[in-house]
Amino acid sequence: MNSSSSTRPRVLVARRLFPEITERLSAHFEVDAYAGVAPLSPSELVARLQGCAGVLVTGTERIDAALLEACPALRAVCSMAVGYNNIDVAACTARRVLVSNAPGVLTETTADFGFALMMATARRISESEHWLRAGQWKQWSYDLFAGSDVHGATLGILGMGRIGQAIARRGALGFGMSVAYHNRSRLPPADEAAVSARYVDLPELLRIADHLVIVVPYTPQTHHLIGAAELALMKPTATLTNIARGGVVDDRALAEALKLRRIAAAGLDVFEGEPQVHPDLLTVPNVVLTPHIASASLPTRRAMAELAATNLVAALTGAQPPTALNPEVLAPAA
Rank of each mutant, 00 (worst) to 15 (best):
Y218P: 00
V213W: 10
V215R: 00
S185G: 05
F175I: 11
D201L: 10
V215W: 01
P203F: 11
P217T: 01
H211V: 11
V216I: 07
P217W: 08
T222F: 13
L173V: 12
G176E: 09
S196H: 12
T222Y: 01
R198G: 04
S196Y: 04
L212A: 08
S196T: 14
V179F: 04
I208C: 12
S185L: 01
I226C: 11
D201K: 08
L225G: 02
H223S: 12
V200E: 08
I208F: 09
Y199T: 02
M177A: 05
L173Y: 15
Y199D: 13
L202C: 10
H223D: 13
F175D: 07
G174Y: 06
A197D: 12
R207D: 09
V213P: 00
V200W: 14
V215I: 15
R186Y: 00
H211P: 05
A197T: 14
E204W: 01
R184L: 15
L205P: 00
A190R: 13
G176T: 06
G174F: 06
T219K: 01
H182Y: 08
E192G: 07
F175Y: 13
V195Y: 05
V213H: 00
P220N: 05
P217G: 04
N183G: 14
L212R: 11
V195N: 05
S196L: 08
N183T: 10
H223T: 15
P217A: 03
T222W: 00
V195D: 02
A194V: 11
Y199C: 15
P189M: 12
G176H: 14
F175V: 03
Y181I: 08
H211K: 03
P188N: 11
V216M: 02
H211T: 00
R184G: 03
T222E: 04
M177I: 02
S185H: 14
V195F: 06
G171A: 10
L187Q: 01
E192D: 07
V195T: 09
R198P: 02
T222I: 07
V179C: 05
P188F: 06
I226R: 08
H182T: 14
M177R: 05
A193P: 09
M177H: 02
S196M: 00
A190K: 13
I226P: 04
L205R: 09
N183K: 07
I208L: 12
E204Y: 00
S178D: 11
G176Q: 11
I226L: 08
R186T: 15
L202P: 10
A194R: 06
D201Y: 07
G171C: 04
D210R: 09
T219F: 09
M177K: 08
D210F: 12
I226W: 00
S178F: 04
E204A: 14
I208P: 02
L173A: 15
S185M: 04
H211L: 03
R207S: 14
A193M: 11
H211I: 02
D191P: 00
A172R: 11
A209C: 07
L173Q: 15
P189I: 08
N183L: 11
G227S: 14
M177G: 03
V213Q: 06
I214G: 05
R184E: 09
